[in-house]
Simulated assay, not measured.
Amino acid sequence: MKKNSLVVVLKSFIFFVTLFAAGTIVAQQQSIPSNQTNQFWDKVQFGGGIGLNFGSGYTDISLSPSAIYNVNQTVALGISLQGGYISSKNYYESYTYGGSLIGLINPIPQIQLSAELEQLRVNTNYDSSLYKSDNFWSTALYLGAGYRSGNVTIGARYDVLHNDAKSIYSEAFMPFVRVYF
């Protein structure tokens, strides 16, 4: 990873950690009446993704639950956990796990802009002695845009830190469908 890319990732991470910590500190200093406690959960939405792909000697399973907190009608912040397993018979087996911080902005109700900082650990074991097993961290910073209707957003995102040699995805650009309940 280039030094400039690392600086961008670290600045983004520090921004999100500071943002979440500030909310926690303020929450610790205020006594909240019991009737207002439910207002927090009224602003939380849950979603995520499940992926299953099976073929002749091939298995790909992924799970990525997520939650967002709607700060207001325009801004939402959240987190996501991710885990995955891929196996290609007599070739390799790979595990991925990690998480991401998510920021969503809706300048108008139908348009959603997003930024997502993803950090995944990749553990790959090859069945052949021709390839060396590999364990590494993969960092991605996605910037995206989509059309939003109710709880569903359809769009595309781009990994500005994409590295062909170390990224776990073959392309920096990818479509998405995002659903929160």
Rank of each mutant, 00 (worst) to 15 (best):
S64L: 00
H162K: 08
I68R: 10
N70A: 15
V177W: 06
G103F: 08
L143K: 02
N90E: 14
V122F: 05
T24L: 15
L63E: 03
A165P: 01
V17E: 15
T124G: 01
V177R: 08
Y158D: 13
K2E: 12
D164P: 00
G83M: 07
G98D: 00
E116G: 02
N135T: 01
I79Y: 07
H162L: 04
R148G: 05
V71Y: 15
L6F: 15
G49F: 09
I79G: 13
G49Y: 11
I68S: 09
Y85V: 02
G49Q: 11
Y180I: 08
A156Y: 09
G48L: 05
S100D: 06
P33I: 05
F173T: 04
I105K: 04
S87P: 02
L120P: 00
Q39F: 12
N38Y: 15
A21C: 03
S100L: 04
S62N: 14
I86Q: 06
F13D: 03
G48D: 02
W41F: 15
P175R: 14
F15K: 05
S114L: 15
I154W: 07
Y95D: 02
A172V: 03
N151P: 05
Y97H: 01
K11D: 12
N123V: 01
G47F: 04
V44C: 13
Y180Q: 07
F181M: 13
A156K: 07
K43F: 10
L77Y: 06
Y147P: 05
A145D: 00
V122N: 03
G83K: 02
G155T: 10
V9S: 14
R178V: 03
I68G: 08
V9C: 07
Q112C: 10
I86C: 01
V7N: 14
G49K: 08
D60G: 09
R157K: 15
M174Y: 11
G23W: 07
I14N: 06
M174D: 14
